[in-house]
């Protein structure tokens, strides 16, 4: 389903990341395929433990090679990142790929001034002089919406609010104008009003730099407001992928549909929320074969699932894993035929 597109600069091909637990490797991310283009926000959404953050750190190459086994190919502008050694990877990190983390307090060194923490990334990737770097720090702080950049540059992380710190993290990530920005739950630790501001900043920055953003989040609202394309992950696999409109207006995979129904919304305020049966299996107990979501929809007959679920294009690059979506219905609702349900 890989389409050739000049804008597409990152393609993740069949990537799996396995962690060593008691001497054995278990997949946290299984056979993921994704592409990212310039000027787009790709959201990866899923619940905790679905592998979305592991995928992000895999792209960044932040895993300890002795504890993890990574396979597949991550083609970044013609270079397979997974073949790089540490030195080679460092040329990409910070320069061509910027990363934004969840907890803006712990992600900054408490003993270093903001200025030094932003300059650090330029020291390793540019030939700028100290003076040029300082000018760029001020420019960046302006760009991320900090009112008094000179003052803030001189401060330490603990002197700033959570929203300000997250702006600093963003400034670090975009300092060298990367083509790819990976934002891992960038607003989870923040209040909603600050969240809205930070998402605005991200969007503006993307427009300016023509970057591609991978936005990792568990928050469907954030996804619906910001993403161009969405990949839904469950138990280490992508189960559905498409444009934001496809995912939110015509969700197909049982997991996507269940998730959307379990969210408190305007029209279900007096009803019971939908609860997905069972639990996400732990890494060690992940079924090796068959549909990983099948145990959570036990009323759907086994024959509806594929033995080896693959992604199916149901039109306009809307991809769904397994064939079970065709026969899926909610137990409390009458089956309406081939997977159609008004949401």
């Amino acid at each position: 389903m890989v389409e050739t597109n000049n804008d597409q600069f990152l393609s993740i091909k069949d990537v799996s990341t396995a962690f060593k637990i008691n001497g054995q490797y278990y997949d946290a991310v299984s056979n993921v395929n994704l592409e990212v283009k310039h000027d787009e926000i790709l959201a990866i959404v899923g619940e905790s433990g679905c592998g979305k953050s592991t995928l992000a750190t895999t792209i960044m190459g932040l895993h300890d090679p002795e504890e993890t086994k990574i396979s597949g190919e991550i083609d970044f502008e013609g270079t397979d990142l997974l073949k790089l050694d540490e030195k080679g990877y460092n040329k990409f990190r910070g320069a061509k790929i910027g990363m934004i983390f969840q907890d803006p307090l712990s992600a900054l060194n408490p003993l270093k001034r903001i200025e030094d923490q932003i300059q650090e990334v330029m020291i390793y990737h540019t030939k700028m002089t100290e003076k040029q770097r300082h000018a760029r720090v001020i420019e960046l702080l302006n760009e991320v919406g900090i009112d008094d950049p000179e003052r803030t540059a001189h401060q330490f992380p603990h002197q700033l609010s959570g929203g300000m710190r997250q702006r600093i993290i963003i400034a670090i990530a975009i300092a060298c104008k990367p083509d790819l920005i990976i934002a891992d739950e960038p607003t989870t630790a923040l209040d909603v009003t600050i969240q809205a501001q930070i998402l605005d900043v991200l969007r503006d920055i993307q427009k300016e730099n023509h970057a591609g953003i991978i936005l990792i989040t568990h928050d469907l609202g954030v996804v619906a407001e910001t993403a161009d394309r969405v990949a839904v992950m469950y138990a280490g696999q992508i189960v559905e992928q498409g444009t934001a409109a496809q995912i939110f207006n015509e969700p197909k995979h049982p997991y996507t549909r269940s998730l959307l129904r379990s969210m408190p919304q305007r029209d279900n305020e007096n009803d019971e929320l939908y609860v997905i049966q069972g639990m996400v299996p732990s890494l060690q107990k992940m079924p090796k074969e068959g549909d990983r979501f099948a145990p959570r929809i036990p009323w759907i007959p086994a024959s509806a699932h594929e033995a080896r679920p693959t992604m199916h294009d149901i039109g306009d690059n809307h991809l769904v894993r397994c064939t079970c979506y065709k026969d899926f219905y909610f137990p409390d609702q009458v089956k309406e035929g081939a997977g159609h349900e008004s949401n």
Binding site: V192, T193, Q195, A196, D219, L220, G221, V222, A224, E225, A244, A245, F248, N249, L260, M263, Q265
Partner: peptide, 10 residues
């Protein structure tokens, strides 16, 4: 500031 899940009115 609450994000809406309705993509059509984004």
């Amino acid at each position: 500031a609450i994000p809406e899940t309705n993509v059509n009115h984004r």
